[in-house]
Design a protein around this nucleic acid. Structure first.
Length: 481
RNA sequence: UCCCCAAUAGCUCAGUUGGUUAGAGCGGCUGACUGUUAAUCAGUAGGUCCCUGGUUCAAGUCCAGGUUGGGGAGCCA
């Protein structure tokens, strides 16, 4: 029995004359009278293996039903390729058909398909160059994330996916219940009696692991979560999912500056990991983006190619400004004076809109920007109050094209101050008794942030729509597959 | 949820002012071809023009409603 070799390793091999077995899916088949060529891919690399079928060795009839999409097991000899597209190829001695793909039904062709079409056949899109590259990159970025934190002595914490608290304050939640929706048990006042539900209380899917991560950090010092997150918002944009993956580090003894340093170091580590380990896939995505941009108007094109942009982020320090400085810059900016902004900046205290964030990142600083010290009114209850009593130690990391990639803060660690903020913002203190207790027993200054994993994958792959960087996207009206 | 745009062959698209039998490229199939690179060449099949209703002698084309998709905004990561 000849052992199977993966195409990624075979393409690096120089064992000419060695007989090997490869298995994979046919990308294209082309032939002439005496010889046929099969481009075979097994997902181990974006590059295809060229399999040569000499019709004097193997009957052409074997290949007759083989088409794009068919799965083959091929045994043959590694040879140095006389052709120009590759250095190594395989001379087939035996071909076993593992599974055919009826060309009348199989939707993928050896041509460019629209991303919209591929979204409709998400079960098959792993077999394309683009989605293969994204899947491999996504994996590498997951691995790099764990490596980064592990190397720094952080512990990975599995925060709960089902939560009994609806006070996490990050948007609409998905209810988790085993009650009969047509006939739920009712209280005397007609409301649903959740005491009879599975957990004896109303439960939801988590919108954030932060509060639990804070609990862990209060004993383990430095922790991070990396888990699924669910938001039942009716968001229809290219950067929102109802189910996404979030990375949430939480660190005891870190102030807001330590927090920013960590965020910047982490993003750069992961980008560098991708550049160092995924060069073939990135080169392909770089080319893909370039071709896509050709159809855009010149003024809408990105000033940098994908890889160039990643290097640029890596080599430049993120700009750090306060909210107040951001408002001053925006107030004096040309688009604001000429009323080009849809929302004109007139006074301190308003929330920054996408157009403002994009101006700061893409036009003014031309690099990632971290905005800190936002007005307390537009930020969450748990953020540490500054001495001015007006702003909190929040930080948003803004990236070109995708906007907010990280949102974080130093947390309010003083019991009385936190309780005051909860009451001001109508956060139910009774439900979060356990959260408050961390401020009662051995409280320490601490910080953390949340990074939307898919937004980072978007940035690194150059994909414009977040639905294309997660295998099976969950968005309003879409839970197929 | 709001604003804008789109839906025609398996895919990507064209379709004039409303006017006869709706087209192209790619892909499929058949054949040709001395090693091709999304091969090439010849031939061939392939259509509920998104759905429902309306206007009209006549609708792929105009109007209304709906569905789905895309872009932007909000919510955010």
């Amino acid at each position: 029995m000849i052992k199977r070799i993966k195409i990624v390793n075979l393409l690096k091999s120089k064992d000419y004359g060695k007989v090997v077995n490869v298995k994979g899916w046919v990308r294209t088949k082309r032939g002439s009278k005496n010889v046929s060529f099969i481009a075979l891919n097994d997902g181990s690399t974006i590059n295809n293996l060229q399999v040569v079928v000499d019709h004097s060795v193997l009957m052409e009839e074997i290949l007759q039903p083989v088409n794009t999409g068919a799965a083959l097991s091929i045994t043959g000899e590694i040879i140095q390729s006389p052709g120009s597209g590759q250095s190594v190829e395989v001379n087939a001695k035996n071909i076993e058909i593992l599974g055919l793909a009826d060309p009348d039904e199989y939707p993928l062709q050896p041509k460019k398909h629209s991303l919209e079409f591929l979204r409709e056949i998400a079960h098959l899109r792993f077999r394309t160059n683009t989605f293969g590259a994204i899947a491999r990159l996504r994996h590498a970025l997951i691995f790099a994330t764990h490596k980064f934190f592990n190397d720094k002595g952080f512990y990975n914490i599995h925060s709960p996916i089902i939560t009994g608290s609806d006070a996490e304050g990050a948007g609409q939640m998905f209810r988790v219940t085993i009650l009969d929706p047509k006939n739920p048990p009712l209280n005397d006042d007609g409301s649903v009696n959740f005491h009879e539900d599975f957990f004896g209380k109303a439960t939801n899917l988590t919108v954030s692991g932060q509060l639990e991560a804070e609990l862990a950090a209060m004993g383990l010092s430095e922790v991070y979560t990396f888990g699924p997150t669910f938001r039942a918002e009716n968001s229809n944009t290219s950067r929102h999912l109802a189910e996404f993956w979030m990375i949430e580090p939480e660190m005891a003894f870190y102030d807001i500056n330590d927090n920013m340093d960590l965020a910047e170091e982490m993003l750069k580590f992961i980008i560098k990991y991708a550049l160092d380990n995924c060069s073939d896939d990135l080169a392909f995505l770089n080319k893909r983006l370039l071709e896509e941009e050709r159809s855009k108007k010149p003024e809408e094109r990105s000033p940098m190619e994908l890889i160039e942009k990643l290097r640029f982020v890596l080599e430049n320090k993120f700009e750090r400004i306060t909210y107040t400085q951001a408002i001053d810059i925006l107030k004096d900016s040309n688009p604001n004076k000429k009323k080009k902004f849809q929302y004109v900046i007139d006074k301190w205290g308003i929330d920054l809109q996408s157009e403002h964030e994009r101006y700061l990142v893409e036009k003014h600083f031309k690099k990632p920007v971290i905005v800190t010290d936002y007005p307390k009114e537009i930020k969450a209850f748990y953020m540490k109050m500054n001495d001015d009593g007006k702003t909190v130690r929040a930080m948003d990391v803004l990236f070109p094209q995708i906007g907010e990639i990280i949102g974080g803060s130093q947390r309010e660690e003083i019991y009385d101050s936190l309780l005051k903020r909860m009451r001001e913002m109508n956060v139910p203190e009774k439900e979060l008794w356990w959260y408050l207790e961390t401020r009662k027993f051995g409280t320490v200054p601490h910080s953390g942030f949340g990074l939307g994993f898919e937004r980072m994958v978007q940035f690194i792959t150059g994909m414009g729509n977040i639905r294309d960087v997660i295998p099976f996207p969950r968005t309003p009206l879409n839970a197929e597959f």
